Simulated assay, not measured.
Amino acid sequence: MKRNYDDSNSTLSHANSSSNKAPRHQYDANPASVAQHYNDRPDVGVVKRKESRIIRLRSFNNWVKSVLIHRYVRPRQNVFDMGCGKGGDLIKWAKARIQHLVAADIANVSLEQMRKRYETLRDRTFSAEFHAMDCYSELIAPKLDRNMRFDTVSMQFCLHYAFENEHKARIMLQNVSSQLRSGGYFIGTMPDANWIVKRVREEPVGSFGFGNSIYSITFDDIKDQDGTKTGFTPFGCKYMFHLVDAVDCPEYLVHWRTFENLAAEYGLKLKFKENFHDFYASASKEEEHARLLNRIGVIGGQAPEMTEEEWEAAGIYLAFAFEKR
Rank of each mutant, 00 (worst) to 15 (best):
M1A: 10
Y5F: 11
N9P: 01
L12E: 14
S17M: 12
S18M: 14
K21E: 10
Y27H: 12
P31F: 10
P31W: 11
P31R: 09
A32D: 11
V34F: 01
V44D: 07
G45S: 03
V46T: 13
K48P: 03
S52K: 09
R53F: 05
R56I: 00
K65Y: 05
Y72W: 14
R74Y: 06
R74P: 01
P75Q: 04
N78V: 09
F80H: 15
D81W: 03
D81Q: 06
D81P: 04
G83K: 00
G83P: 00
K86N: 14
K86G: 06
K86C: 05
L90W: 07
I91W: 10
A94C: 07
A94R: 13
R97S: 15
H100C: 08
L101A: 13
A104G: 11
I106K: 15
A107K: 00
V109C: 08
V109K: 15
E112D: 12
R115C: 04
D123V: 07
R124P: 05
A132Q: 04
M133I: 06
Y136C: 11
K143Q: 10
K143V: 02
D145P: 03
F150C: 06
S154I: 06
M155T: 04
M155N: 10
Q156M: 05
C158Q: 09
L159Y: 05
L159T: 10
F163Y: 07
E164H: 14
A169Q: 01
Q179P: 13
S182Q: 10
S182K: 12
G183A: 09
G184P: 03
F186S: 15
F186I: 06
F186G: 05
F186R: 15
G188L: 02
T189W: 09
A193H: 02
V197Y: 13
E203K: 11
E203T: 06
E203I: 03
P204I: 03
S207F: 14
G209Q: 13
G209I: 06
N212M: 07
N212D: 15
I214P: 08
I214Q: 08
T218E: 15
F219L: 05
I222Y: 09
K223G: 03
G227T: 09
T228G: 09
T230R: 13
F235Q: 15
F235G: 13
F235Y: 15
G236I: 00
K238I: 02
M240D: 09
M240N: 11
L243P: 03
V244G: 08
V244S: 12
V247A: 14
D248C: 09
C249H: 13
E251K: 07
Y252H: 12
L253D: 06
L253C: 05
V254R: 01
V254G: 00
T258Q: 05
F259T: 01
N261S: 09
A263C: 09
E265I: 05
L268H: 03
L268I: 02
L270S: 12
K273I: 00
N275S: 07
H277W: 12
D278Q: 14
R291A: 13
I296Q: 10
G300H: 06
Q302K: 11
A303M: 04
P304I: 07
P304K: 12
M306S: 09
E309S: 11
E310S: 01
E312V: 01
A313K: 08
I316H: 08
L318A: 11
A319Y: 05
A321V: 00
K324L: 02
